[in-house]
Design a protein around this nucleic acid. Structure first.
Length: 426
RNA sequence: GGAGGAAUGGCAGAGUGGUUGAACGCGGCGGUCUUGAAAACCGUUGACUGUAACAGGUCCGGGGGUUCGAAUCCCUCUUCCUCCGCCA
């Protein structure tokens, strides 16, 4: 969530940013309400502190009086303390209510977009930030979409997924399964080469973790929930990996942490249907390698650029045409200050598929998670957190199958052959 | 799943109702000494909130209670350790 301090000191920037997100006026008004409640809170706190201070003093005096055997005077003071206690209880209640109100309002406000974020309401308004130089392939007349290719070459089976679990769960087999495993290893190796520490995190997380990265409360419906144990299946490795840093105070030299994690990701995707979710386009379980960074505020945007370069290099090595979008204010995630989406070309479907989303959350997550570092002056400062997919598998598989199909099979990109141990799917 | 024990500052570890935000030690930081370093010695060293700055307030796993006063007593939850059972 956005820190109160930012509302207090940078209100103008906040309001400008929120306009880019096309927030309703009543939502923008929350900023003023929060600031008002905050001064109320301070007033109540000061009053309460004074009363507590008095009663602390009295308690000490009473102790000394008892020690010196002056029970009578001590008992007299007890009634004074009882009065103070009554008052302090009321103030405490008021304080609690005010803070709960502030918190509730704060949770409703998204992160403040970076100045370079374009204005706009929907995905239509996203700005094409970069396009790969690779030309879109011209496919043969009889070219097939990936779900037909999967049937032809027995790569994955949707019907079996339905039988075993339900729609949106895929059973990969044969070279389809091996391609999947090859991609996972390829992406992990590339990340490790780029200096990321490999993590294998838990796939279920508790409520605190889901809250820490912002899945709760607003994306509750997106996650599978194991009620009996009060645990959530992760929608992305971002959740467990970033939560390593929940409630942590780092030393300044520990900043610049680079982590990567491979996990399956589980998403309910309630309400999705139709042609755009066909095949691997949108599934309930898919594999993804996530990269996460914890950075000094001065260095986070350089880190973001570095992450873009990393993802670009992966797509280049897979020989896929892609483009990078800079998301507009209206299409950005709640927690993000700047987000770039990577889309790869799905040649047979003739559409772009999102395969990566790289974001700088600035202090939004670190504030929520209570992640801080100490600078040289000994001040506690929230670092910036960033993450991105590098990469999400299901759609990459779709794109590889479609873009690299030929008359006599599907060609495996050079860089991947050491991992698949086969050069062609036929 | 059953039985018992524990949870204190970066670490280790005292503290069982009244100057205890917390001893001692290690670690960290600053200094003295030294050509430099080590050793030794001296000092300093938790978080949050608050203030212009002081002051003040909160925090000894979480929550609740008893009391004028709780790290210390009671209830409850969580986690960890030991033993038994089960198990890849």
């Amino acid at each position: 969530m956005v820190e109160l301090k930012i509302f207090r000191t940078e209100k103008e920037r906040v309001l400008k940013g929120y306009q880019k997100r096309n927030l309703k006026q009543e939502q923008i008004d929350l900023v003023d309400q929060i600031l008002h409640l905050d001064t109320e809170r301070k007033k109540t706190q000061a009053e309460l502190d004074q009363i507590l201070s008095q009663s602390n003093h009295l308690a000490k005096e009473i102790g000394e009086l008892f020690k010196s055997g002056n029970a009578q005077e001590a008992n007299a003071k007890k009634t004074a303390v009882a009065d103070l206690k009554e008052k302090s209880k009321q103030l405490e209640l008021l304080l609690e209510q005010t803070m709960a109100q502030i918190n509730e309002l704060q949770l409703q406000l998204p992160n403040v977009p970076n100045t370079v974020v374009p204005h706009g309401k929907t995905a239509e308004d996203n700005e094409v930030y970069f396009s790969s130089s690779r030309p879109l392939p011209v496919l043969a007349e009889n070219a097939l979409p990936h779900w037909e290719l999967a049937k032809k070459y027995k790569l994955f089976d949707m019907e079996l997924g339905v039988k075993i679990t339900g729609s949106g769960f895929i059973l990969y087999r044969n070279k389809g399964a091996r391609l999947q495993r090859a991609l996972i290893n390829f992406f992990l190796d590339e990340a490790v080469k780029a200096g990321y520490e490999e993590i294998i995190p838990p796939l279920l997380v508790n409520e605190d973790s889901a809250r820490g990265t912002g899945q709760l409360p607003d994306k509750e419906g997106q996650m599978y929930y194991a009620e009996k144990d009060d645990l959530y299946l992760i929608p992305t490795a971002e959740v467990p990996v970033t939560n390593i840093y929940r409630d942590v105070i780092l030393k300044e030299d520990q900043l610049g942490a680079k982590l990567c994690g491979y996990t399956p990701c589980f998403r309910r995707e309630a309400g999705s249907y139709g042609a755009h979710v066909k095949g691997l386009n949108r599934v309930h379980q898919f594999d993804k390698i996530e990269i996460v960074r914890i950075e000094h505020p001065d260095k986070s945007y350089a880190a973001l650029d570095e992450m873009l370069e990393h993802v670009k290099s992966l797509l280049e090595k897979l020989e896929l045409p892609y483009r990078i979008l800079r998301l507009c204010g209206g299409d950005m995630g709640f927690a993000s200050a700047l987000t770039y989406d990577f889309e790869v070309w799905s040649a047979a479907q003739e559409r772009w598929l999102e395969v990566s989303s790289v974001s700088n959350f600035e202090t939004f997550q670190s504030h929520r998670m209570k992640l801080r570092f100490k600078n040289e002056k000994g001040e506690s400062i929230h670092p910036h957190t960033l993450n991105g997919s590098a990469l999400a598998l299901a759609r990459i598989v779709a794109s590889i199958l479609e873009n690299h199909q030929t008359e006599d099979g599907i060609r495996i990109p050079q860089a991947l052959i050491p991992y698949t141990c086969f050069e062609k799917i036929n």
